[in-house]
């Protein structure tokens, strides 16, 4: 499937359009448009993409984004994780509309990509699990950039992504259930605080 993503990207690239299709398809040659449409259909059918076509990120970047979101707030015994909560779609939507997010997140993913290539000779998704963990452990804490200033772009990226992932997860149905929020509904009487020690 990933080969197909690349093919689609190559098709669009060869047409001089960058990566994202959208309405621009209207102006490309019919044959190429048909091919691109076909590839988007194939991609939509791919269960791993959840039927979602990224609005901003390239398929490869989006895959990485999904993995990072899930690493930040993973599925556990109590609930599903960030992917099931729709956090990557939410982040992609906001990013497609905001140049500042594009710089922070697009730039951050590029930083992660090249840092993994330098360190491990592979892009993030291809790295061994222990290498993925090592780089996340580096960029998940501000104190690390004090020791190694070259980590600063990664730390800034991850800090921002962590906030947005929390937004996406905790505003989802499963996230709200996970927290145990009860309300947003019609009640005829408000009972006040239940008995709680020290409160």
């Amino acid at each position: 499937m990933s080969a197909n993503f690349v093919s689609r990207r190559n098709v669009l690239k060869s047409l001089g359009m960058g990566v994202v299709a959208g309405s621009v398809l209207q102006v490309i040659p019919l044959e190429a448009a048909e091919y691109a449409h076909h590839m988007i259909e194939v991609e939509r059918a791919d269960p791993r993409s959840g039927g979602y076509t990224p609005k901003f990120f390239s398929p490869q970047q989006y895959k990485t984004l999904q993995m990072l979101c899930e690493a930040i707030l993973p599925e556990d015994a109590d609930s599903g994780g960030a992917i099931e909560a729709g956090a990557p779609e939410f982040i992609d939507l906001l990013t497609s509309e905001n140049p500042d997010y594009q710089l922070k997140l697009g730039g951050g993913l590029t930083w992660l990509h090249s840092t993994c290539l330098i360190r491990y000779g592979k892009e993030y998704l291809e790295c061994a699990p222990q290498h993925q963990k090592a780089i996340l452990d580096d960029i998940a804490y501000r104190k690390n950039e004090l020791l190694d200033p070259t980590l600063s772009p990664g730390v800034a990226f991850f800090t921002f992504l962590r906030n947005l992932t929390a937004d996406g997860f905790f505003t989802s149905k499963i996230g709200i259930e996970y927290l145990g929020y009860i309300g947003n509904t019609f009640v005829s009487d408000f009972p006040g605080c239940p008995p709680v020690p020290d409160v």
Binding site: V187, F190, P194, V196
Partner: peptide, 11 residues
């Protein structure tokens, strides 16, 4: 101490 508050409608 609010960590101990059980899930309830707080709205």
């Amino acid at each position: 101490q609010l960590e101990k508050v059980p899930a309830h409608n707080h709205d």
